[in-house]
Write a protein that binds this DNA or RNA. Structure first.
Lengths: 192, 192
DNA sequence: TATATACTTGAGCGATCGTTCAATAAACTC
DNA sequence: GAGTTTATTGAACGATCGCTCAAGTATATA
């Protein structure tokens, strides 16, 4: 048997690069020309590597979610569940490596839900997964006695995620002091 | 002087109709074919009436904001400033006449900000205007003694608007009970 | 009724969309 | 090196994008 030629590109690096572009510009706002230029791939190579624009978009959302979950768990490892929940708001809007402040999943869902696009469903599932992570942290914090047990952790998680989505969108505005909002969200955790 | 023929359409009604389409589908997600079909206008009439897709989009955002401000002020007239702030969350997610729950201005800003599109700036200005309305209500509530005066009304308004944006986006999800979030936001007002 | 004016119509413009594919170049085994 | 397999290239496809404009139609005044 003969061994084939190896691709010249690093697939994971290309997904990471594409994620930044999609995250910033959205689905319709990113053309194949954009991707070809930034990823330095001609059409043939692009389609051999990823199959379609939508398939690559799905890969970038998976990567986005995986990293988000990992970061949250690392934060909980270091600061405990309540500490992680209090730190997360400030963290998400201060990450300078992000191409934009708003949540990629929320942007995707908002853009494509009306079209009943598959990517909207996938974004929704990823958001559900993130919400479950938040709920798990609230449950842990309750077990640790850091949050009163009279609260429903799933309800807390839904409200918390909603607040974070609003915060991240607000953080893109020039007339809003997102640090203040983040501080207020964190302060709310202390009152639970 | 001779008098011309009158248009067969109601311009304001067309703007209202276009607003629903843009609100639901977004800027890139709405094609001129969509508008021609829904507004029952051929290209020539469309461009004679509105000039361009973007010009019509701007008109719909103006109408959207004008109606939002009017509704809020009507609510304040009836329920007082604090009552309006408490009622607004439930109100925005329960309005069945809306084509979608999420805020049109936020959707527009999120979609077009990366492109430095003029419509993103206009959306941002309209959001600033809404925020000023909220701040005015918080100030009134403080004057009426319904909210403690130690709070900064502008900061309260920014947080409140952020929460509403998150709520309205969350309300489009099937796995989230938006009524609970709305109730929790309203409950926060009582603790100020 | 004649005429001027504006509205309506729809074919079609150039540009760009996501995608395909045949031709060429490169890297592997034998 | 010969032979085979895959990666790379870039022209070009059909569809759709926002938009233009000349031709036809309807309504007003005179």
């Amino acid at each position: 048997m003969l061994m084939p030629r190896k691709p010249a590109y690093d697939r994971d690096a290309l997904i990471a690069k594409a994620k930044d572009i999609f995250w910033r510009q959205g689905w319709a706002g990113t053309s194949l020309k954009d991707l070809e230029r930034e990823l330095k791939l001609k059409p043939g190579s692009f389609y051999a590597a990823f199959g379609s624009k939508d398939a690559l978009y799905a890969l970038t959302m998976e990567s986005y979610t995986r990293e988000g979950v990992a970061r949250l768990k690392a934060l909980a490892e270091k600061l405990g569940p309540k500490g992680a929940l209090k730190a997360q708001p400030r963290f998400v809007i201060e990450a300078v490596e992000n191409p934009t402040k708003a949540c990629m999943l929320a942007k995707t869902y908002a853009e494509l839900q009306a079209k009943d696009h598959d990517l909207a469903d996938q974004a929704a599932r990823h958001m559900t997964e993130m919400k479950a992570c938040f709920a798990e942290l609230f449950r842990s914090a309750q077990k640790a006695g850091e949050i009163r047990s009279e609260h429903d952790p799933d309800r807390l998680a839904a409200r918390y995620q909603s607040d974070i989505l609003g915060l991240r969108l607000s953080a893109e505005r020039k007339d809003v002091d997102a640090d203040e909002i983040a501080a207020d969200i964190a302060a709310d955790i202390d009152r639970l």
